[in-house]
Amino acid sequence: MEAQTIVQPEKKKSNQDVIIIKHLNKSFGSNKVLVDFNINLEKDENLVVMGKSGSGKSVLIKCIIGLLEPDSGTIEIFGRNIPDLDRNELDEIRAKVGFLFQGNALYDSMTVRQNLEFPLRRHWMNVNQPEVNKLVQEALDDVGLKHTINMMPAELSGGMRKRIALARTLILKPEIILYDEPTTGLDPGTAKEIIELIVAIQKKYRSSSLIISHDMNCVRLAADRVVMLIDGRCYAEGTYDSLKKSGDPKIKDLIE
């Protein structure tokens, strides 16, 4: 089934697609989660994929980063098909793609500094300590939490943990950032701060963002384009305003 395009975004930011997903299928037993799913993410774009809980949004984002293997279909990032890559090739791609986990996934046994240093030292093995210190400080500065550098994740509030997780994602200066439900579990005020931070970061680093969310504030404030994931398919796409005007009951149900 083709996506029902309500309204195309008025202005395409660029013609360069950094992620192209074609005919993606993923099932768990008899449960078909993604069915012939197609989307693309353009350079410098903020794309939000909306869907109800359990609609397969997190499965989609985990297939993109190579944590889950799709049953069929292609996921091209920078022109390379993710399911075909071996571990080393996948790591090369992952160095350019940041991933913000829904539950933050901060390492409990490490301090904030060690959490931020971890991806740096694993991806860029030859980086020296002064450079590491500079990048850690810069990432913490971006999220406004320089003072937490020696704290443990357990000592931080939910919003602070989300910001630190975001700093860890940013530290490698990724060209693409994948956000899995970035505002889940946060109070409305903190959620709004996180969304504003995501938008500010996208502007500062000119990165492309794919945001998985069912939070309407997130969609409204962050999305250049919205894709609606319904019944495992790309049901509709367009701008937030155009989708809001739609009379389709499934779209209305999701957006309201």
Partner: peptide, 21 residues
């Protein structure tokens, strides 16, 4: 308990995407 906790809080997945086996 440590690995189980890391598994359910996606820390193991986070390691995977951080270029670590």
């Amino acid at each position: 308990a440590e690995l189980g906790s890391m598994k359910v809080t996606e820390q193991i997945d986070a390691m995977e995407v951080s270029g670590t086996n």
